[in-house]
Simulated assay, not measured.
Amino acid sequence: MGWTRILGGIDPLVRLLLITIFLATIVPVTGDGRAIARIVSDGAIFLLFLLNGLRLPRGDVLAGLRNARFLLPLVAWCFLAMGAAGWMLWQIGSAVLPAQVALGLLFLGILPSTVQSATAYSSLAGGNVAASVVAAAVLNVLGVFITAPLLALLAGTEAVGIDIGGLERIATILLLPFVIGQLAQGWAGGWVRSNRVLVSWADRTAIAIAVYVAFSGAVEQGLWTRVDALAWAALLGLVAVFLAIGFGGAWLCGGMLRLDRGDRIAFLFAGAQKSIALGAPLASVLFPPAVAGLLLLPVLVYHLLQLMLSAPLANRLNPQPGP
């Protein structure tokens, strides 16, 4: 098996993020360039959420909100149960990890689900794709409102440092473009949905820019010396525990709710996966790059491992696997 085939089997966003982290390590943005990079990052994030608003039909959001038996437990699982698991692992990780990296475990726990990969793996597993699309989209909309206040509540405002200015940045850079996109769907939504490849790469590029700026700040503050081999081992172990809680707990929760198999599969992937697409922009908006880069380490590790786990899991759950 050649390197081309190996790399071709890796999710494109993962490949792009690995390249981004490598570039931030060898050529981090420093000095006066940081202010310019932050402006570029904010602009890319604004575009990301504008595109999200344009392509998410309002009717789908409203339909998802009406499926309370599926959606309300999913919201509780994603933000409250996973948030509690994140809080527990943050407490454990604080003994062996740098403070900002340990806090990233809590941040990871209260992030919403992915949209694209949760839907893709739900489809691959034979789940309810419509429910998965709507659920993941609604969770991401709620995440803009819920994640930052919940982080401040669980970690304490002194530890997190979220103030009115931070909430204003969320409203301006995340919420405002999404609302504009929703209002402009009549004349631009069709173009966005018909150019999915271009829009998908615009999404990935915006996320990569946010990660690059955040990691540049962390590298300048000594990321690779502050997180030693023991800390990396501890981080991988804690994230593995998080994966077991996320996927195992979401599957058991769907069974306890007596969801049919299609909805249970949709609940699994929407409830267990966590979104780097919101995590990277939100961390970049709320925190200076040096803090955001460290905070995102658990999110990036979880994102990589969740994709590695989801593909074989989806194939196993599919009652009629393809050739």
Rank of each mutant, 00 (worst) to 15 (best):
M1W: 10
W3R: 04
G8Q: 08
G8F: 10
G9W: 00
R15G: 07
I19V: 10
F22C: 02
V27D: 14
T30V: 13
S41K: 06
S41L: 05
D42N: 12
G43S: 11
G43F: 12
I45D: 06
L50I: 03
N52P: 05
N52M: 06
G53F: 00
L54W: 09
P57N: 02
P57M: 00
G59C: 01
A63M: 04
R69T: 08
R69P: 10
L71N: 12
C78Y: 11
F79C: 04
A81G: 03
A84M: 11
A85L: 05
W87T: 01
Q91W: 12
I92K: 10
A99S: 15
A99Q: 15
A102I: 08
L106M: 02
L106A: 07
F107N: 02
I110T: 08
T114K: 04
T114S: 01
T114Q: 07
Q116T: 00
Q116W: 11
Q116G: 00
S122D: 09
S123K: 13
S123A: 15
A125K: 04
G127R: 03
G127C: 04
A130F: 11
A131Q: 01
V133W: 10
V133K: 01
A136G: 04
N140V: 04
I146A: 06
T147C: 08
A148Q: 10
A148L: 05
L153R: 01
E158T: 08
A159W: 11
A159D: 06
G161T: 01
I162K: 03
D163I: 03
I164L: 11
E168Q: 12
E168K: 10
A171Q: 12
A171E: 10
L175G: 08
L176Y: 12
P177V: 08
P177N: 02
F178K: 03
L183C: 14
L183F: 15
G186N: 15
G189Y: 15
G189I: 07
R193C: 09
R193H: 14
N195A: 07
V197P: 04
W201L: 02
W201Y: 03
W201A: 07
R204C: 00
T205W: 13
A206I: 06
A208Q: 07
F215P: 12
F215E: 10
S216V: 01
G217N: 11
G217T: 07
A218F: 13
E220G: 07
L223Q: 11
A229M: 03
L230D: 14
A233S: 09
A233N: 04
L238T: 08
A240G: 10
F242M: 08
F242W: 11
G249K: 12
G254K: 14
L259P: 00
G262L: 08
D263K: 13
A266R: 09
S275T: 04
A277G: 13
A283H: 15
F287L: 01
P289R: 01
P289F: 10
A290D: 15
A290K: 12
P298W: 01
L317A: 13
Q320I: 10
